[in-house]
Structure formats: structure tokens, C-alpha cells
Simulated assay, not measured.
Amino acid sequence: MKNLYVDINVLQSVPSSNINRDDTGAPKTAIYGGVTRARVSSQSWKRAIRMAFDEQADGADWLKGIRTTRGPLMLAKELQKLNADLSEDDALKMAVGVFDKAKIKLDKKKNQTKALLMVSRGQIEKLAKYVIENDELDGKAIKEALKGEHSLDMALFGRMVADDPSLNVDAACQVAHAISTHEIVPEFDYYTAVDDSKADNESGSAMLGTIEYDSATLYRYANVNVNELLHNLGDVDATTEGLKLFIKDFIMSMPTGKQNTFANKTVPQYVMVTVRQDTPVNLVTAFEKPVKSREGYVKASIKYLEDEYKRTQSFVEKPLATFVLTTYDSEINNQEENIESLVNDTVETIETRVNDEDSSN
């Protein structure tokens, strides 16, 4: 099947917030176009997406994997489900033997893997079944069990196993660090806390502190290699459903850093989704020259983004389809009424393309 990529471009205005902190507690920043921008790391947003998958799972274990050092303990519990006669100690000993046989490094004192390992519920169940049905364990068979039954987040974001690269899963999705379309100036909130039980003749605060924050109109971008996602999941229906979930959750999710402090949960003001067959295109270059405005940044950012989209057509093939959902004016056709129609039309375009290729073969 020919290459097929989905680009997701989002503009989202976020008020005073600190949704992704650095090691000093300050909001992350980046220098781009010679000025300081607000930044939210891709890892932070991918975590938010994974949590959204978890909330929507409703018993569907394939949506979210588990990234943990406690893989042996998970496997031990699964072994006990299949064989109620196994004691906790025996089940854990068997589970540790499985990971040892796969040459995944273990902390034997804690009965844990030395590094975080992402596994899916399906992989744990498959391993447990293999152990119960076989008296002697084969390392290759164990690794094969870990190479199938990928969860959606593992299929999208990949898995790296330093101990054995053959267990790596190539990510079908790339997520960019979100940056502001304009220059930002970090600000500080000075706050105090009063002791409610202090006497009337006492003065002063029980606590003083500061917190750094900023506000920004963010440009967010992600892409999905549809063929790679299909390869990782191994099922057309799962790929279609997974793509729908990812598009929607990338658009609607937000990292939760300091959210109780700032109540900064907003929805995007503009979304552009393109389906391409040649190459993904990150349109962040629209904002290499920072947007300047005293009347808000969203409207100007949309203009910058759509102009850059048109300019890129000189370098790449015309997309198979482009869909826009916005509360503002747009110069691009194929305007969508809501997020559901945006997602459905995008996936329908992909399904049509796949079906056309199948019929021509």
C-alpha cells in the first residue's frame, strides 16, 4: 500500500498557566525565530493522550498499555488467575523466570525490571497462557509473545527496550513540542496563605510563595503514518478505531500541570487535518516570524498558518484532503461543523483510499 499520512495542526489559546514545568518549576520555553516561546513538551501531551485512552477504555484493554518496572508482578497475578493453585511466591518466581529467559535485565531484590518496560494487557495474558501450557520455556517464544497484541498507545508512540532492540516497536505517530505562535514574557504570581486559626491580635501570613506562569496561543502538531499503525496493530478495524480516537484525543486533551491552580482547560480555536501520501508536513515555519498583535493572537495565527499551508504546496504534493474546524473565519474549503464530522471525514478519506488500492490489486 502506498504511503498515507495524517497531519493534525491545532491552534489553541491558553490563559495564565503552568501546564508543563522544567526542573525549577517554571513553564518550559524555547527559542524560535530569535524570541522566547512558551513550550509544552511532546512527552507531556502524549501522557495526556494516554490518560484519555484510559478514561475511554470501558473494558477495552487494547487502548492503553502499561509502562512499568512491575512487569513480573503483573505476570504473576495473571498466572494465578489461570492457575488458582499457584502461591504468590511460586507465581512470582515463574514470572521472574520468564523475564530472565527473555534476557530483560531484572532487579532480583525487588523482582522488577531495571528499566521501565511498556507491555500491553494482551501481551501479559499471552505470556501467562504460554507459561501455563509449557513446562520448559523458550526465549524466542517469549519474545514473540511480546511482539504481538500491541496496545494502541504502544502502536502509536512506540516502545524502546535497550536490553533487546528486537522488542522495539517503531512509533507510527510523531508529536511535536507545542510552542506559542508569538513571543512570551514569563510572569510571577506572588501569593500568601493565612492561618485561619490565628488570634485576632496576630498579623502576617503563615506562608509566602511565588509561582511562574505564562499565557499563549499554542501551535500544536502531530502526524500518523497510517501504514505503520496498521502494521503495529495488525487489524484494519482496530487501526480505523485507533485513528479516530487519536485524532479526537490529540485535539481535546491537555496536560494537567497546575490545572487546579489556574483552571486553564480550553478547547482549540482552529484545527486543520490533512491526509497526504508523500510526506508529513509540520507547518510551524508559519510562526518562525512571531505573530505580533494587540488584539489577540488567534485570528492572526490562523492567517499565518493558512498562508504557510498554501506556500508548502510548491514543495509537496497536493493533499488528498484537507479539513478545517474553527470558530473563526478560514480561507480553506471543507469546513467542518464539529469534531465528530472532522474525525469521520478524515477516516472516511483514508478508508476510501485503502479500498481503492485493494480493488486495483
Rank of each mutant, 00 (worst) to 15 (best):
K114N: 09
K299C: 13
P72G: 02
G209N: 02
E78I: 01
V224E: 02
R294T: 14
Y304M: 10
N282I: 14
E144R: 05
P27H: 08
M252S: 11
T68D: 00
V226R: 00
D329V: 05
T69Q: 06
I211A: 02
M160C: 10
D189W: 14
T349D: 04
I302A: 08
E308T: 14
A128D: 00
K126E: 15
A199F: 12
K114Y: 06
E336N: 09
E308Y: 11
N134A: 01
G148D: 11
T240I: 14
G97H: 10
M74S: 08
K101N: 13
A128I: 04
N361I: 14
G59W: 13
E183V: 06
Q112A: 12
F315E: 04
D170G: 02
V224Y: 02
E348P: 00
V35I: 12
A321K: 05
K103G: 00
T239W: 14
N338A: 04
E357Y: 15
E317D: 14
V35D: 03
H177S: 14
K303R: 08
L218T: 00
A193I: 12
L63E: 05
W45V: 03
T192Q: 03
W62F: 12
R21M: 07
V273C: 04
S205H: 10
V354S: 01
Y213M: 06
V10S: 11
G158N: 04
G59C: 05
Y270I: 01
R47S: 07
